[in-house]
């Protein structure tokens, strides 16, 4: 699974960075900076917790790699 952010939804609450600090940091304005996006195995539990904690439903776990926009 792959972590994705809908940037049009994200308001920079920052809960994801607290719940998943090994993968998500925050920039100066408080918006998430993603490290390794691919999540597998035991890490999925933590990632799912972060996804469900996002108050804007901006953070998602997606199955397939998303196609490039055109």
């Amino acid at each position: 699974m792959r972590l994705e952010i809908d940037w049009t939804r994200c308001d920079g609450h920052g809960l994801c960075a607290r719940l998943l600090p090994e993968r998500i940091g925050l920039d100066d304005a408080g918006f998430p900076v993603l490290g390794d996006r691919m999540v597998e195995g035991d890490d999925l539990t933590h990632a799912r917790r972060a996804v469900s904690a996002c108050p804007r439903l901006a953070l998602r776990l997606e199955r397939a790699p998303t196609p490039a926009p055109r």
Partner: peptide
């Protein structure tokens, strides 16, 4: 102005 990293960055 819809994505924070762009709008602030």
């Amino acid at each position: 102005a819809q994505c924070g990293p762009c709008f602030f960055g």
